[in-house]
Amino acid sequence: MTARDPLAAATPPVKSGRTPAPGMVERRGSGYWLTHLGLIIGLLFVFFPIWLAFVASTVSQPEIVRPPMPLLPGDRFFDNYRKALVSGINAPVALMMLNSLIMAMGITLGKIAISLLSAFAIVYFRFPLRRVFFWLIFLTLMLPVEVRIVPTYEVVAGFGMLNSYSGLIFPLIASATATFLFRQFFMTVPDELAEAARVDGARPMRFFWDILLPMSRTNIAALFVILFIYGWNQYLWPLLITTDPSMNTIVMGIKQMFPAGDDTADWPVIMATSILAMIPPVIVVISMQKLFIRGLVDSEK
């Protein structure tokens, strides 16, 4: 093991520092446990609502409404989740999750593609009004979806894109943040690299594909995580333009499961839906995190 790991073999002082004199252990130990205690308390604090939601999704409706609320999972796990996935309340959760997945992936990939290309254009090409275009893109940073939602609705309705995936995805694709991020990254790439590629005979798009894109992969991975969660959590926009339950996304779907007026809510199913809605972003974060870290190590200079 040591022989295979040159770093460990080359740094004995650090290793010996880890087994300090007996007097040191106590002091270091108390700090060690205190920080961990703090972290564990914080973790419990954050995790508790999620735990409650999980517990609520495994018991029956009467058990939830009767105080005190149960703190340990019940025996209705499979019943509740099956009910949520297959029938749901307005639309089956499986369908809503598929809708959400298509919307989130569409927004993420669209945003990354468009912002990579626009950043490429702004950094590497000299065309008239280049700065103006950049500032126009930058300006849209200051206009969130909510501000321009009425005119956007008008446009989407005019194109007949209500209740469709394209209506869910296209208005949210333009991204000043991602363009800005890629622009900043491209500006740190030495000019000589573009020139070397030119001498090697690479046309601009070839340079983009072969050199710029592989070099940006860590940024792309980071953006993918952020943008996927952004897309997945879209609430207001899907709520506005999808009236057909079969086009509902899961985040807005949860809200629509809440009863209107005096109806009784099917809380176990709603909670099961909430738990299910959390799973895809968690999967994306965990799986992309691996790629993200590997990317960081790979491109270390």
Binding site: P190, E192, D210, I211
Partner: peptide, 11 residues
Amino acid sequence: MVFQNYALYPH
């Protein structure tokens, strides 16, 4: 051409 900072493709 050989460049001052070599301009090798890092990836």
